[in-house]
Write a protein that binds this DNA or RNA. Sequence first.
DNA 1: ATCCTATTATTCAACATTGAATCACAATAG
DNA 2: CTATTGTGATTCAATGTTGAATAATAGGAT
Lengths: 164, 164
Amino acid sequence: MGTHHEGTAAERRALDAYIKLMRAARSVTARLVRRLATERLTERQFGVLETLYHLGPLPQCALGRKQLTTGGNITFVVDNLVRDGLAERRRDSSDRRIVTVHLTPKGRALIAQTFPRHAAAIQEQFSALTPDEQEVLARLMKKLGLAQGLADDEGAETPATGRA
Amino acid sequence: MGTHHEGTAAERRALDAYIKLMRAARSVTARLVRRLATERLTERQFGVLETLYHLGPLPQCALGRKQLTTGGNITFVVDNLVRDGLAERRRDSSDRRIVTVHLTPKGRALIAQTFPRHAAAIQEQFSALTPDEQEVLARLMKKLGLAQGLADDEGAETPATGRA
DNA sequence: ATCCTATTATTCAACATTGAATCACAATAG
DNA sequence: CTATTGTGATTCAATGTTGAATAATAGGAT
């Protein structure tokens, strides 16, 4: 499973950790995306719905930061949620640049039903790790993600499962 | 940073680990992709070149498994590598279904030059973790990725950085 | 007020990715 | 030999994603 690269020990260690991280993340994501497809949701549609569900109405720019994606993409995702009657846009009256996205009753019902299943699927996958290992992993990922912080998130609030 | 979800401790632990894993993976990937763009390579183009560089010529189906992507996508990626003169296709004579992908001299020169820079960028990002932490991470990721194994890889051989 | 700068959302073209359908070929069973 | 089944590659349409350009608005500065 190692690397074929000949470098310093430090380099090989970093590459090995990197490749295993990416493969695992990709495997986990692929399984969850396949599951979400059975609920007619894409990964990011789910992420937006879930964020709105747990944090309440938010401007699109905030959603973009939460989902770690671009403004153009959020516009597209929200377009589709609106098309499907799951969310609606409301122009902010105090700052007219801002469009706040709200769940519709239909959207709320869908995410209320879907989220527990999604959470269960995540829990099942992570059952491959012991509770201690999960906590260690969370700590390491926080350290790694924060490094050179790419302005991921403006604050401390992170929705439950967010984008993936 | 936690989750807003009210569930069992086990569920919250898994969700927290999951969300941090995904955010970190996405951040790391975003930074590396941005760097690769300066070399006129996409993430998967780089992954394919790197695999060929370290493992030698391979059939497209093998590349697909290494890169954890679909056959159609590999065809597309290889199309572009061929267009750019970095790789070439050769029909296998003993099994005429198979197309083996080879690096061209130009492709080999490019990846030989690019790979060290990419490796250095990875090493820099992972310097946020101690060597011990990197090894723990690698172990955890292997455990997690193998769970419910989605037939990622046919064997033990994994290219140095692969896809990301 | 007027200018400058920054933020927000939208649009669009280019590109990436998937999944399904199709074709070619191989391998096996009968 | 010839069906049948399986594998590898390609194609295509639908969709997702990015990055750049644009327009509207806000918030100072002067």
